[in-house]
């Protein structure tokens, strides 16, 4: 029982980061029907910004806001440079564009920065733990879970209580009608990219703190986790994205811990098998968008 609880807490920490990533993916999908495979590039660019900052001798106190700012700016730049050109195009074109952005950013860092791992310091407290009964809880997981809860509350307030949130939800429900009602579509989309970039930035802070390094493909893994979690939760659903992220994190930790040693290497494979089974029984993910409020 203790081990199960320990796994659930560990999974919650991991899943919280996935939830933040999935939220960013869901926000963009909600307004543009774009499954953004360039979502991880915010973390790639932020990672190199962090590396540069550490080279200047800066501390995490400065690097954290830097990561957030760079992530938002990168997201807005990607929209401006790439996606703005294909507004209104079919979903497939948008998908290909997002792949293109991913490969261009990846190649630029690979060719013009370095193919090597760029290391930087992790904060000392990342691996600290404290005990609650027989449970050992990482300070890092506690911070991640806390920040995620606060972020979700703020995003929820933003969407429910502000004009921007109203416009975003209206655009997600019916983009053309929202435009006819006076919603400025470009502003809404730009805002969605900004919000998505901020969410990626918050997730990126934790991802980079844990990793202590960056590479040209640093954004690939977080992008895959975010997209996967968004799919599991139900594309376009905010609640679904959060649920999907938490479920994915917990599934990974539980399976790695519970699978027999002889097949423990198949953890990732079993996770995908479970996802496949989920889609057989619930093709729309946890929260079917057809019956739920989108974004």
């Amino acid at each position: 029982m203790t081990e199960l609880l320990q796994n659930l807490i560990d999974g919650l920490g991991r899943g919280s980061i996935y939830a933040l990533l999935a939220l960013g993916v869901a926000v963009i999908f909600g307004v543009m029907h774009l499954l953004n495979f360039a979502h991880g590039e915010m973390i790639t660019v932020s990672g190199y910004a962090a590396y540069w900052a550490f080279q200047q001798g800066w501390s995490w106190w400065i690097v954290v806001p830097l990561i957030l700012v760079v992530s938002v700016l990168t997201s807005l730049a990607i929209d401006q440079v790439a996606f703005r050109r294909v507004r209104g195009a079919d979903d497939f074109t948008l998908l290909l564009t997002s792949f293109g952005v991913h490969f261009v950013v990846f190649s630029l860092f690979l060719l013009y920065v370095s193919a090597s791992v760029k290391n930087f310091s992790r904060p000392g407290w990342v691996t600290d733990t404290y005990k609650v009964g027989s449970l050992r809880i990482e300070v890092f997981d506690t911070v991640v879970i806390g920040v995620t809860i606060i972020t979700l509350l703020l995003v929820s307030l933003l969407l429910q209580r502000t004009m921007f949130g109203l416009a975003l939800r209206a655009a997600a429900a019916d983009f053309d009608t929202a435009r006819l009602m006076g919603v400025r579509s470009d502003n809404v989309i730009r805002g969605a990219f900004g919000l998505s970039g901020l969410l990626a930035g918050i997730a990126g802070v934790f991802w980079l703190m844990r990793a202590g390094q960056t590479t040209p493909s640093a954004g690939l893994d977080p992008m895959l986790k975010g997209v996967l979690a968004a799919l599991i939760g139900g594309l376009g659903s905010l609640r679904g994205a959060v649920l999907g992220g938490l479920a994915l994190g917990m599934a990974e930790v539980l399976l790695r811990s519970r699978l027999p040693d002889s097949i423990a290497g198949l953890t990732e494979g079993v996770v995908f098998l479970l996802i496949a089974l989920l889609f057989i029984f619930r093709p729309g993910g946890f929260v079917s968008v057809a019956h739920a409020e989108r974004v």
Partner: peptide, 16 residues
Amino acid sequence: QSYVWAADTDFSAQVN
């Protein structure tokens, strides 16, 4: 213990 090469940095399950 199993892990994912070049990706995993959270080893909570293995460490426990």
